[in-house]
Design a binder for these strands. Sequence first.
DNA 1: GATAATCATCATATGAAGATGCTGATTAAG
DNA 2: CTTAATCAGCATCTTCATATGATGATTATC
Lengths: 152, 152
Amino acid sequence: MISRTAEYALRAVLYLARVEDRRPVPVDDIAGALGAPRNYLSKTLNELARLGIANSQRGPAGGFWLNADPETLTVAALIEPFDDKRTSGMCLLGGRICDEEHPCGAHQLWSAAQEAARASIADLTIAQLIRTAPALEFDNENGRPLRTSIPA
Amino acid sequence: MISRTAEYALRAVLYLARVEDRRPVPVDDIAGALGAPRNYLSKTLNELARLGIANSQRGPAGGFWLNADPETLTVAALIEPFDDKRTSGMCLLGGRICDEEHPCGAHQLWSAAQEAARASIADLTIAQLIRTAPALEFDNENGRPLRTSIPA
DNA sequence: GATAATCATCATATGAAGATGCTGATTAAG
DNA sequence: CTTAATCAGCATCTTCATATGATGATTATC
């Protein structure tokens, strides 16, 4: 449904949104908590910084911290820059003269299904998502969650 | 939302469902009508035949024709074997002890969104999809649609 | 049976997403 | 100023969906 990169971005933001007083968190810590590859996540976090969603700081005690407001940042807005943009755009009936101005019935049905999925997360904010879930259980020693991934 | 292969499969079935008297249609014709690569579509049609959705016949005047009943074949059932099965399955909050038995709130929200999208096409049949769209405009000469793809 | 049409299938190429490793740039702390 | 921590970024590798080209297997028609 969403690309893995987009999922990393979302989970990283959810993680950062829970960090007390917005102190910088090194990529290593975030990657460890998320179970994501370090350098790959680094690129994603870098992009989040460019988007203004996070801030970054180099050097000792540096890292990433959340810049956006969790109450207004929506899931849709967050993952949009990381999501797969190659939709085929072909008419399902293949051959019918059909576009956005003159959509065929099948096209309308299909678009409606896609919109239903999109709408269900369009207005969901990071803060709402966090509030619906109980607090993470952190390890007292290093501030990392006790578990980093979920078995199938 | 769905893989290109799944879309080929769906459009091929929609195409075959419109063929009068279920006569065999060569891959070349179907590929031409759909604007899909011939050999690639061939594999997909072959799979449809193995699934019992279509039949195939080699030799002159051979080809593929629909076997399944458009009134009972659903879009979901059709594209399922061709769809992308690599969902990450990771908990969005990354670190919460969370599985299907003990889902976190975020997990529930996310699953609900995915299910909403899936449900919207789960019961949609091929026949319903065709009835909502006007008939294809065929070229009298070769039986192919006048247009094979839709400009962006 | 020879021929041609057609499906079946294999081997390989391509492009993008995902992942890894290395090197360079920045910066706080001593 | 030196050191170490950390982000920034490049080059490459892997994997997989998608696509292409060639070859073999079947079968109707003559």
